[in-house]
Design a protein around this nucleic acid. Structure first.
Length: 266
DNA sequence: ATGGCAGGTTATACCTGA
């Protein structure tokens, strides 16, 4: 039994964020890193930079220019899979199993464009379709003793306190009822537990993303909680803590997402 | 209601993000 800290971070280009790896490790002491929007093909992934910090094991599912996900680990990764969704090779899912048997799923759900209408906006249709495909896939893999982690940029802020203004964002993609319903359908496939909300009551505002476009993201604080870590019920009693590293949004050069860490005793 | 910024690309304008 030892502590396992899993960190998820939408890096918005892993190559630009390489100089921040040391600060990330110092702040959160991760054992497993799940990255999204790596924006790099696997052949060009900066593996060496992570290896120098002890993350010598990797499961990559890259893509050119947009998307791309990766799991980096201090301990070996086995049974690596790279599922593709909606018939696209756009690097949205990679999964791997740790020695403890815990399976890590790193996901990047599409943003969904501007208009929350699947008929008028193909990007929104893609987002809903991908969530539907994921739900069917996870439902088919269900087993009561499964010890799974589902983490990544899900691009949906489900609770009222997961956005700076519930009222202002109800019709904004990322907080519309139809997306939240689709996310809830996915959550129910394994009775997934939102590991961050397990520690922070739903009344307390919690964000993991702040737009680049604000003049002063910190002062405006118009955030959304788009990045999540979920665990299956057999892992509930192993949950030890959760942190959203808000200060990382102020690092230079910053991602618009903050890293989210969850610690399990496994 | 709008625009604001950042990153990538067979770049130097346009797509994507959310």
């Amino acid at each position: 039994m030892k502590d396992l800290t899993i960190v998820t971070w939408n890096v918005n280009s892993v190559r630009l964020r390489v100089p921040l790896i040391g600060a990330l490790i110092e702040a959160l002491a991760p054992d497993v890193l799940c990255l999204q929007e790596t924006k790099v093909v696997d052949a060009d992934f900066p593996l060496q930079a992570f290896a120098e910090h002890g993350f010598v094991h990797a499961a990559l599912h890259g893509a050119k220019a947009y998307g791309g996900v990766a799991i980096l680990s201090r301990e070996p990764l086995a049974h690596i899979e790279r599922p593709q969704w909606c018939g696209k090779a756009d690097g949205r899912h990679v999964l791997a199993r740790l020695r403890s048997g815990v399976e890590i799923n790193c996901l990047y759900v599409p943003a969904g464009g501007d208009v929350p209408d699947p008929i008028a906006n193909p990007k929104f249709a893609h987002k809903l379709r991908l969530l539907g495909e994921l739900s069917a896939w996870f439902a088919a893999r269900k087993a009561p003793r499964n010890r799974l982690v589902l983490t990544g940029d899900l691009n949906i802020a489900p609770l009222e306190s997961d956005v700076w203004s519930h009222r202002a964002l109800l019709k904004e993609v990322s907080h519309t009822p139809v997306e939240i319903d689709a996310l809830e359908t996915l959550r129910k496939t394994h009775d997934w537990i939102d590991a961050v909300r397990y520690f922070v009551p739903p009344g307390e505002p919690l964000y993991s993303w702040w737009s680049y476009r604000a003049r002063d993201w910190e002062a405006a604080n118009r955030g959304r909680r788009l990045d999540h870590v979920w665990v299956t019920p057999p892992l509930r009693r192993h949950l030890r803590g959760a942190t959203i590293l808000r200060e990382a949004r102020g690092w230079s050069p910053p991602s618009d997402h903050a890293p989210v860490a969850v610690t399990l005793a496994v």
